[in-house]
Design a binder for these strands. Structure first.
Lengths: 189, 189
DNA sequence: CTACCATTCAAACGATCGTTTGATTACCGG
DNA sequence: CCGGTAATCAAACGATCGTTTGAATGGTAG
């Protein structure tokens, strides 16, 4: 239960269970398989992210003077926050990125099932703020935003990243740049 | 030599050698280790990508009437082209994305060494077209472009992707959307 | 206290991995 | 034609993986 926090797809169960100081067989006893364990951890993360995003979206929608930047913030900030969470946030992104990389159909469907509705709600909100955009055009652009965000969550990048800034300020800096860039991209003619 | 084309990090040497119809031991005989094989394949791909990108960049720079969109095209199109190459292009992206995901320091340094100079040349060209941008600001934005591009290369995305369009037209469509979006993002105030 | 059920544990299982070995084959200059 | 070097091959090695097993342990209802 607790140790699931340490869960990470690429690591072996022996490493995970050793780090969590539980017996190796406990995983298969409680979860049935390693895959089920991963899915469980993954689902919790995704649920949490969905919750935060929808709450932020509701906040934005409640504001009559909302701007595109606010909406982007509701989409971007919860994701960056979770990806930099100390307790397994990085692992979450790692599993995600690996799933992307491997073209894992199973996880792809899983994401579509457990994340699609959030994406659709955001798409609706975006469409209301960008009424001149065709629906398909918006989807293309949101996909680009999602790509840039995912990349940022993985915290790769050959150029940026300073050591003298706190993690939190780095995150906020990232969010601001992403939001400004994406707002311009979404507003493009 | 030939079979290296099929190389893919996540796959086992037994799968790879079986698919290439060569003996299992041939890999260690010719390359020393699986890791060396991967690095070799990876380096070739990256060299090819660098070549194409620099050639496209030279073409753009030779044009006095060049626009930001042309420059972005020189950066984006060779990458998309290679990622959709039938012979191992997907594998290349897979290794790349996995390296991102795992925060592989080794491959990270490898990329920085063998790819940094291309990125720097492009950054210079971008800077000349966007003279009002601070250098650091440009780097932030280029990093976002790289992220969106990487994501597009992995061809993930929950929304887009139709089946009735050819791979080539899909690629060009992707490129155009990426370029338009990124141009607006880069030009943002 | 006892009987029962859930949990924990050390140990082993079978499969697969990357690598090594030693024999066999292919090639080729002298 | 022959000798030696390079390449190929089947087989095995040791390590590690996820999973299973069966005994030891814990707590709890009757």
């Amino acid at each position: 239960m607790l140790f699931a926090r340490h869960g990470f797809a690429g690591a072996s169960l022996r490493q995970v269970t050793a780090a969590a100081k539980v017996n190796l067989a406990a995983v298969n006893y409680h979860f049935g398989s390693k895959e089920s364990l991963i899915e469980e951890v993954f689902r919790r993360r995704l649920d949490e992210l969905n919750r935060h995003r929808l709450a932020a979206l509701a906040d934005v929608e409640a504001n009559p003077a909302r701007e595109l930047e606010d909406l982007l913030g509701a989409f971007v900030r919860p994701a960056l926050e979770q990806s930099m969470d100390s307790a397994g946030g990085a692992a979450f992104v790692r599993v995600l990125a690996r799933a992307y990389a491997e073209h894992d159909e199973r996880l792809r469907r899983f994401l579509s099932d457990n994340y699609g509705h959030v994406l659709r709600e955001f798409a609706g909100a975006f469409l209301r703020l960008l009424p001149h955009l065709e629906k398909e055009e918006l989807y293309w652009r949101l996909d680009i935003v999602a790509g840039a965000l995912t990349y940022a969550m993985a915290d790769f990048g050959l150029i940026k990243r300073k050591n003298d800034v706190s993690e939190q300020s780095h995150r906020e800096h990232t969010a601001q740049h992403l939001i400004r860039f994406a707002a311009a991209g979404l507003r493009a003619a």
